[in-house]
Write a protein that binds this DNA or RNA. Structure first.
Lengths: 337, 337
DNA sequence: CTGTTAGCGCGTTCAT
DNA sequence: ATGAACGCGCTAACAG
């Protein structure tokens, strides 16, 4: 099995390696006749350039890395879809890394990536991440980074998010208008900016409509879903006055459904529910779940395009622009007045 | 910004590049003292080896490619999760490529990958793929491949699937036992083996219980979901005797729900439904959807492990072993007797 | 237009 | 136990 590379092609064609290389890259400084011969043989031999040799020489990998907490989550799956699309169109490859929301793993991944395996990085930070030293080093490594959805405020670079504050406000206002007087807010307890924005929207909407925020109505969920179910059950039993729930995370909305069924609390008659969710089947739930749905595909695509633009220009540092795409509110029977 | 590489480290330590390289690779032919010094400086300078130089030299990329139709699908998302886990544990990187069930794209991707960018390939073939020439070339390129879920029978290599025939049989039998007399089967019309296996299970189950298979009850869906809804509507109107539906694909099951609601056909009173689905929220649908659920994470993980074992052994060709994992049937209210 | 030469950063000889 | 030298496959600078 003789290897098919520039050298073997050049030998068979009786020309230099450089000429073959130029011909295949369609250089203007090579005759059309030569190009034809080279291309013909390359096709016949099924020549494929060695990506690593090329990367090493040009110091460009034509690869971007995507670091996300998880992939078994409709939001991230759709985002990857958008990222892959943008990357493919630009001739880039996509490396996937999952942090599982683990800080150590995130650090390890990012550290490794500084070795030059990727030309740029797309990232949604892990919820457990608080120290961002590992991200600062990227600038020195000449690797631009674009955050999407779960951004890191401390790093000055491009960010693509959704209008989380407004969405939280709208969701809460929607419940208020549907007649809810005691609206609980379920969120995952971490230091992610999106959670904070959504919560602030919730709080401000309450205030704007003359409802006094009640700390006892805010439930901080955890990673383990079993525990969340227990926490929600406890909350609903402790506060039977709750007549509305705004879940900041899809999983908490789903768990709310389970608990309500268990406790015999009817949705939406007893409690109205709305949640952040990208669940396709939300409309088919029993009852249908009202949702705030993020344009996940567009977020991924937009973030990738911004990154690739920077990569092409060899800009290691991106301007701290913040692109905000809008989520959509789908009111369904779960919040019917 | 002086680059941090073996050369710069060697210069600063007053030793040769070779020694630094050996020390970092923990070679036994270098003194412990030297190792300490090298490692200390490498850590201080945040040295990361250049993956491409290493790959070029060793002819090993420590990277596997995953080629799948889509990622915004719970099955594939979970599979990637399993793949990434196995890869990470073995120190491998994961490149993702989406075919969108397009044959041309699949060929283009596979062709490109022959350039040596990956050490191995995991693949679920596109539904439109009929010619497998592009896959045969992989053996010459020394790239082992493992198929999962959507396998290619014509290529002799390892495959990881679920027991699709048995699942189709069980699903149908479940409907029969629930009292259904006219069971329709919805599948996506393509040449994928899984669809054929599931259909055969359906047919055999009917026969085994004395039901004569009726071609008029088998609906071949298409890619476009709008059309599927129309086709299902037409089928239910044309055959009001249908009292059971076995959907071979999640999306068709969901569409069935929509059509039934539209036509006022109650589930499960009028029609009982069961479908292949990895939808987490299936239990919360209205009414709950009975499902055949594949162990997607395990499929991905298992496939990756088999591939990585071959990669480590530099085996370009894998024995044609077929690993079959079992799906689980979750009977819910949608098929209640 | 084409050939020669010189690396990219690393791992592996072969010396010593 | 360490260093010098070569080459993986490719691209770019410089000749001619």
């Amino acid at each position: 099995m003789t290897p098919v590379n520039l050298k073997s092609l050049a030998k068979e064609l009786n020309m230099s390696i450089a000429t073959v290389s130029r011909a295949l890259r369609d250089s203007h400084e090579v005759s059309e006749a030569t190009k034809q011969r080279v291309r013909a043989l390359a096709a016949a031999r099924h020549y494929e350039p060695n990506a690593y040799a090329s990367s090493l020489r040009r110091n460009i990998s034509k690869t971007i890395g995507v670091v996300i907490p998880k992939v078994a989550n409709h939001f991230f799956a759709l985002a990857i879809n958008g990222i892959e699309e943008a990357a493919r169109q630009a001739g880039y490859h996509v490396l996937i890394y999952l942090t599982h929301d683990d800080y150590e793993r995130e650090v390890s991944i990012v550290q490794h990536l500084k070795g030059g395996r990727v030309d740029g990085l797309l990232m949604s930070v892990a919820s457990s991440t608080q120290d961002f030293a590992h991200l600062r080093g990227l600038k020195e490594a000449n690797i631009p980074i674009v955050f999407f959805d779960r951004v890191c405020a401390e790093i000055n670079t491009a960010k693509v998010t959704t209008n989380d504050y407004e969405s939280g406000y709208q969701a809460t206002e929607h419940l208020i208008r549907a007649g809810c007087r005691h609206i609980a807010h379920l969120l995952i307890s971490n230091n992610l900016s999106i959670g904070q924005f959504r919560q602030q929207g919730y709080l401000d909407a309450l205030m704007a409509h003359g409802h006094a925020p009640d700390p006892g109505l805010i439930l901080h969920g955890v990673m383990d879903n079993e525990q969340n179910v227990a926490l929600i059950r406890e909350l609903l039993l402790r506060r039977p006055d709750i007549d509305g729930i705004f879940a900041s995370v899809e999983r908490l909305a789903i768990s709310t459904y389970h608990v309500c069924k268990e406790l015999g609390r009817r949705i939406p008659e007893d409690i109205k529910v709305i949640g952040f969710s990208n669940l396709e089947a939300a409309a088919l739930l029993d009852p249908p779940l009202s949702t705030i749905t993020q344009p996940a595909y567009d977020i991924g695509r937009e973030a990738a395009k911004i990154l690739l633009r920077a990569v092409e220009k060899k800009k290691a540092v991106l301007p701290g622009q913040s692109v905000v795409l809008e989520s959509a509110l789908f009111a369904r029977r779960s919040t019917a007045g």
